[in-house]
Design a protein around this nucleic acid. Sequence first.
DNA 1: GTTGACGTAGAA
DNA 2: TTCTACGTCAAC
Length: 249
Amino acid sequence: MAPLRFPQAAKIARLATPIFPSPMTPWSCDNGMLWGRKPPAVNVNVNVNVNGAHAHAHTHRTAMPRAEPLNVHMPSKMSTDNFLSPLSQVGGAECMNRLKVPPQSSGSGGGGGAGEAERGGATFGGFALPPGVIVMTTLHSGAGSSVATMTDSAFQIAADCQHSSSASCSGSNASTNASVSANSSCSGGAAKRKRKRCGVCAPCRRLINCGVCSSCRNRKTGHQICKFRKCEELKKKPGSTVERAQVDD
DNA sequence: GTTGACGTAGAA
DNA sequence: TTCTACGTCAAC
Ligand SMILES: [Zn+2]
Ligand SMILES: [Zn+2]
């Protein structure tokens, strides 16, 4: 029998380990739980396996009884240095939606290693979300209440922050987006399929579901991605191609 | 205009 | 098969 109560933990461990060069990953636990699934079908389908050889490591999704996706907020007592402790022991893993780690193809998309560094301020070997969590943690560092709201705001802040800092949103990586664009403009008729997230915009680069937004809380019935992860491209009308919408409107 | 719910495309 | 999430519509 394995010491790990959470089958995901094992997977996460494998996931996080190769990603974080440092032995002690600040997110090894909490984030690991957040990213416990598989990469979605992002438009940018780069074969770069974040897990490397462990790509196939993802065991069966063992029909996880997907606990309620809410309760993202960690124990209010958590501090910047121990916030993952309570999570590991209380099994906060289930608290948050088990998020999966996107391919983050941007790695080879066009920016390259250097590009990632500036992308989100704190990019751990390809993961560009930590900043959001950090902000959140810092924000409610002294406040124990309204964590949910805090989290929400934090994410927005983080998103905005990234957006500003990483103008490369639709820059170098945009090349990958071209795929979808071309696909979308496929002579109207058959192109009515399903659009895919660009994978490069700020929301797309979000790695974790906030767990508190309506989409997260109603995922079972809403079948919608976290509001903070909703691709900006998809937010636009199917007809409006890329930035053209802005010009027209 | 916004939100929630549903069907289902698309991927694993 | 399961799972996530896009498109659409109804309700608000
Ligand atoms: Zn959310
Ligand atoms: Zn996007």
